[in-house]
Design a protein around this nucleic acid. Structure first.
Length: 419
RNA sequence: GGAGAAAUACCCAAGUGGCUCAAGGGGCUCCCCUGCUAAGGGAGUAGACUGGAUAAAACUGGUGCGAGGGUUCAAAUCCCUCUUUCUCCGCCA
């Protein structure tokens, strides 16, 4: 979230910057509630100061066996006033919080301005899209033919948008995620295996709530949420902490299954591994000093790209425009892998710099030269495993229906061909 | 799931309604003493978050004893709910 005071004092500037985002946001509401709250706060605090002072006097009188009936009566009346004002405050506080939480991050000045994804800017490309002298099949057909991906069985045991991986398919998925974790660990990321369920506070911390509740799965028993991404548990590890400045930047990588309701995407990407209710992902998370965060975003993006390079998959990097970046993000690079069945680049990683937006929301600070400051948080997929599997099957497919295992994965697969 | 105990500052810990706007240790920081080290002596160690005031400060208010409510003129202290930890029982990969 943004600083309430900052919003109140820079309302016009903020409105102008948010106008480049998609959606509309009620900055005025924040300002109104803020000034109302401030007014009430001054009133109640003056009365509390009085009460504290007189209560001390009463204590002295009582100790000297004097009569304080009159003062106690006065304080009783004052207490009623305080209670009334506090009740009004208790009504306004959650409204103000809600209003502030519903304001998204301000796009960074280097984020291209534009209304939707057509205004995203391509930064660089790597590799060549796969070409072949036979007709390339989509991964769901390759997977079904090799009996390594089984959507009908998943539909039977669970429902649509789930997949059963079988045999070398299951091993391929596991090989990819192990390869990703090992590679990131070599680049200085500490491996984390977090809970796959989180509480409500964590969902607020990273911004999935309150606005996007319908996208998440909630467990009926205890109100926990299935993680939509490892970003949620991993970033929240340091919620309400003061980090050791010398330890920054903190770098974590984590594998989790990710669970998404995919509300509003009915009919899109219904075949294959591209859009599932449950998918595997390795996530990269960083906590940095403010002045280093943009540079760390570049490095994080390259760390994610390294996976695709080692796997020999063609991709491009795109800088998302103001209309397309996520709610909490100030700047985002998407990495898009070449997917032959789509005949275009498909998102496989989203690397974002949240600046101090999440840190303020989660109260994560470090002790800097100027005293306590909010850290900057960043994260990016490194990478979505299911989509990587899909890209490998399609890119490395052979005319006979078999799939060559990319060299980097052979130690993990213990075979050179899936047939 | 059941029963009991606990949660106070960096750590340990005292404190059952008003001279506690939290005692005392330890540790840490600085200073004194000393040729150096040890020992000894002194000072500091509740910050954090919010307000008011100011050109900016100095100054000043509120909240803070696991979290949130309540009782009271007044709560670390009494009551309720929740969380976490420990002990025992049950269940269990």
């Amino acid at each position: 979230m943004l600083d309430v005071r900052f919003i109140a004092e820079n309302a016009d500037e903020i409105k102008a910057k948010l106008a480049n985002r998609s959606g509309s946001y009620d900055v005025d509401k924040v300002c109104q509630l803020y000034s109302k709250r401030k007014e009430l706060l001054v009133q109640t605090e003056q009365r509390k100061a009085m009460r504290n002072k007189v209560s001390d006097q009463i204590a002295v009188i009582k100790r000297n066996k004097g009569d304080a009936t009159e003062l106690i009566a006065q304080m009783k009346a004052l207490g009623e006033e305080i209670k009334q004002i506090d009740a009004q405050l208790a009504e306004i506080e959650p409204m103000l919080k809600e209003a502030v939480l519903s304001i998204p991050n301000i796009p960074h000045e280097s984020t291209p301005i534009g209304k939707d994804e057509s205004c995203n800017v391509e930064i660089r490309r790597y590799g060549e899209p796969r070409k072949a002298d036979f007709e390339l099949k989509p991964h769901w057909e390759i997977g079904a033919n090799l009996k390594i991906l089984d959507a009908p069985t998943a539909a039977k045991i669970t429902g649509t948008r789930f997949t059963v991986y079988r045999g070398l398919g299951a091993r391929l998925e596991r090989a990819i995620l192990n390869f990703m974790l090992d590679t990131h660990a070599q680049n200085g990321y500490t491996e984390i295996m977090p809970p796959f369920m989180v509480n409500r506070d964590s969902m607020y911390g990273t911004g999935q709530l309150p606005k996007f509740e319908e996208d998440a799965f909630c467990v009926k028993n205890n109100g926990y949420f299935l993680v939509p991404t490892a970003e949620v548990p991993v970033t929240n590890m340091h919620r309400s902490e003061v980090l050791d400045a010398a330890s920054l930047p903190l770098k974590y990588c984590a594998y989790t299954a990710c669970f998404r309701a995919e509300a509003g995407s009915a009919g899109r990407d219904t075949r294959g591994l591209i859009r599932q209710h449950q998918f595997n992902k390795v996530e990269l998370v960083k906590f940095t000093r403010p002045e280093e965060s943009l540079n760390e975003l570049e490095k994080l993006t390259m760390d994610a790209e390294l996976i695709l390079q080692k796997l020999g998959l063609a991709y491009r990097v795109v800088s998302l425009c103001t209309g397309d970046i996520g709610f909490s993000s100030g700047k985002t690079y998407d990495i898009e892998v070449w997917m032959p069945s789509y005949n275009r680049y498909v998102e496989i990683s989203s690397c974002s710099d949240f600046f101090d937006y999440q840190a303020r929301r989660m109260n994560i600070k470090f002790k800097g030269e100027q005293g306590l400051e909010f850290v900057h948080t960043l994260n990016g997929s490194g990478l979505a495993v299911g989509r990587t599997t899909a890209a490998i099957l399609e890119t490395y497919q052979n005319a006979d229906g078999s799939v060559t295992v990319p060299e980097a994965l052979i130690p993990y697969m213990r075979t050179e061909v899936i047939r």
